[in-house]
Design a protein around this nucleic acid. Structure first.
Ligand SMILES: [Mn+2]
Ligand SMILES: [Mn+2]
Ligand SMILES: [Zn+2]
Ligand SMILES: [Zn+2]
Lengths: 164, 164
DNA sequence: GGGCTTGATGCAACATTGTAGCATTAGGCT
DNA sequence: AGCCTAATGCTACAATGTTGCATCAAGCCC
């Protein structure tokens, strides 16, 4: 499956009230009235420290590598719960599988880039999804999902190396 | 399954060179060197006349209603072929299933609105997906998919009727 | 620390969406 | 009308996610 590296470094982030740097995954889970289980804990820590959205499959693989026993269904349910609680966000990359990223600032939204070559999804922190202008009357917009598709920098470099 | 009505009328469209109004589905298929089969023909006609993107399932249902015998797999392949040929476009509505719409103008792109209540996807002809500004170097953007999520006008009205 | 309660897990079975292989059919051409 | 082969129909399979239910263990009270 896909590796867990990100092809470009994420920019520095400003800590916010919702999730100050020193609030541990354990505390954030407990604060929502959820039980701190090994799967939830490991997944939330992974998402908090991750720089790009991860698929269920990638997370499962990482858990396995870390020697954390887990069940497919439990992982689905843990991810659902994290999203419900606002601790994670679900991203549709244009494939059939969802991807998940940790939520630092509940108010902060950003666009994503999906590489159609390698399947990586990277966060475009600087790019806000367009606001809901010129919408037919009666429509209420909850959120905007903007996904750019194309070729990532890593795939571009790989191309150049192959034909110099 | 979902009905085939659209909750708001599509604006008038200007015919273009790629697909002048008088070019029949039959002619467009043949022009690409494809064989004109009943499934391709019916699907392309449906997409050309439709005002919002349809899922495989909705198309299958419409074919069945029209008494056009078809196979699940054949329909998948017909849709793939139409997309390859530039006659249809695939839209990720944020669910697991793709949706398809006819392509009138190959150059024209627009955003979509996905109603999280009823699942309908409607075209926002006036809203262009944001261009690729402020992208990390080395990234090449092919296209932008912008999907607004929220509640459509029909669902809003239904709400008001229930609690007046 | 020991027991209770119930939220969370693990497992099996199922649903949906889409693909692959391959024999058969039928579209278009002569 | 007959031929060639693109397209179909069928079966089997893969990937992703969901549901039901018995069992386990996290957190709480003592
Ligand atoms: Mn992101
Ligand atoms: Mn559209
Ligand atoms: Zn790439
Ligand atoms: Zn709706």
């Amino acid at each position: 499956m896909a590796s867990l590296q990100t092809p470009y470094p994420a920019p520095a982030r400003v800590p916010d009230d919702d999730a100050p740097r020193h609030t541990s995954a354990r505390e954030r889970i407990a604060a929502r009235g959820g039980r701190v289980t090994r799967t939830r804990l490991a997944v939330l820590e992974m998402l908090q420290h991750g720089t790009h959205p991860l698929s269920h499959d990638e997370i499962a693989e990482a858990l396995a590598s870390a020697g954390i026993a887990h069940d497919r269904v439990t992982l689905y349910r843990a991810l659902d719960w994290l999203v419900e609680q606002g601790l994670a966000r679900r991203i549709a990359g244009g494939e059939r599988a969802w991807r998940f990223e940790g939520v630092r600032d509940a108010g902060h939204r950003h666009a994503h880039f999906h590489c159609d070559r390698c399947g990586q999804v990277v966060c475009l922190e600087g790019l806000q999804p367009a606001p809901a202008t010129a919408l037919p009357s009666g429509f209420q917009v909850e959120r905007a999902d903007l996904v750019l598709h194309g070729q990532c920098a890593a795939c571009g470099r790989r191309d150049e190396e192959l034909r110099p």
